[in-house]
Design a protein around this nucleic acid. Structure first.
Lengths: 234, 234
DNA sequence: ACCTGAACACCGTTCAAGT
DNA sequence: ACCTGAACACCGTTCAAGT
């Protein structure tokens, strides 16, 4: 483990440095801005040098996703004294906050397997929480996946409404943009949509995110209650 | 409206023909296979001829998404005699069947605004159903969006598990592939995930899709019941 | 082992030109 | 109005070569 380094100009690079550059470019300019060539340029190296550390661009992007999911703190839902629903809500809001900090990464997350170590750690935690909810193992797994679908689906659609690359504008601004857009929906073709335009504008808020999550948790709660009534093992 | 056409070799192309070619290529070889150049080649034309009909590649892909959503039949959920939950389930399964026929299109759907005419028509129908469920307008809109998030989130994550382009393999094959993958999850790091591997393998099935949908509908039902008890207007 | 220069086979898009 | 040839400014990736 003696880790010799830096004798001469070699080892100009690290995997870390490459991922930092990739994530920065992704955050600043969106998916198109994070090419192998721009990443290499940012770390001051020839494009093909990246291939010493990663086998392909896809591998770099997978590692970026893992890096982002690694920012999720696992203790927000760890306190077993709190009710499981509160813990799920805290975790969900925390995940949302961390992930939406990198809008351009969402298509990568819902476009690939989500089976890296940190993705598995999140799944493990959700499984744990669903166990605490009183669900038997196989229902707990199904419910955990339902939560994954809801979380990543909601985040992806949220981000998908913003066309320009770069950090997400403030919530109020995104709602205002949607309000303008849906004011133009023709009443004769889509009467209900047009009538509900004001509510539709708020689809991108954290309030709607939490509202949807609570309906999902209500559905899971009902299952847990039914299981308990049935007399199945906790 | 006299629409003169075809005098000489001009009008070799149609928007329809371009979209057909684009969708075929998308279905056969995935997103990378559907380049402006391959699309043009398939319809027998120079690459830049496509720009006579669409302003950009992004516009072509948006139109492809709309074309797929146009395959959704609106009468599967129209029969008001049936209970609203059954109608939502029918619609959801129908949408899933139609959309999963084009796996490569899902990243396009969850990566963009979903505000085309056919997307709006689907939203309108969900709004209608949520009204029939007894929800007041603003809750109906929130619930409709929850369903959109669930539907497209579930479909996107479903497709994201299959790395090779082309049509989705049969369900049994996809489950088997997942079983092999999750058999390799280390028990010491992810005990619950490893223990639930057999259930996790079934995340990609239509059964799990329906299971999750039913939990969501349970959550929405609870809200409707509460609203009714409250004495709010139907 | 790590990095470079040069090249290959692609992209999306634009522009001037032809009918 | 519709299409072509040619070009521009990019891609990801590979390969031989240098240290």
């Amino acid at each position: 483990m003696t880790e010799r380094r830096r004798r001469g100009p070699r080892r100009a690079l690290t995997e870390e440095a490459i991922l930092d550059a990739a994530l920065e470019l992704l955050d600043e300019g969106g998916a198109d801005a994070a090419s192998i060539r721009t990443i290499a340029a940012r770390v001051g190296v020839a494009p093909n040098a990246v291939y010493t550390y990663f086998p392909s661009k896809a591998a770099v992007l997978r590692a970026v996703v893992e890096r982002i999911l690694g920012d999720i703190e696992h203790d927000v839902a760890a306190d077993r004294a709190r009710p499981w629903r509160e813990r799920v809500e805290s975790l969900a809001l925390h995940v949302r906050e961390r992930v939406l900090a990198h809008p351009a990464a969402l298509p990568l997350m819902v476009g690939g397997p989500l089976d890296g170590r940190n993705a598995l750690a999140l799944h493990e935690q959700l499984l744990d929480l669903m166990g605490d909810a009183g669900l038997p193992p196989s229902d707990a797994a199904r419910a955990a996946y339902l939560l994954v679908v809801y979380l990543f689906g909601a985040m992806a659609l949220n981000v998908a409404q913003v066309p320009e690359p770069g950090p997400l504008p403030p919530e109020a601004e995104r709602v205002a943009a949607r309000r303008r857009r849906f004011a133009a929906v023709p009443t004769e073709s889509f009467p209900r949509t047009a009538a509900a335009a004001d509510t539709i504008a708020t689809y991108v808020t954290s309030e709607q995110f939490l509202w949807g999550l609570r309906r999902v948790l209500d559905g899971i709660s009902a299952l847990a209650a039914h299981t308990a009534t049935d007399g199945s093992p906790a």
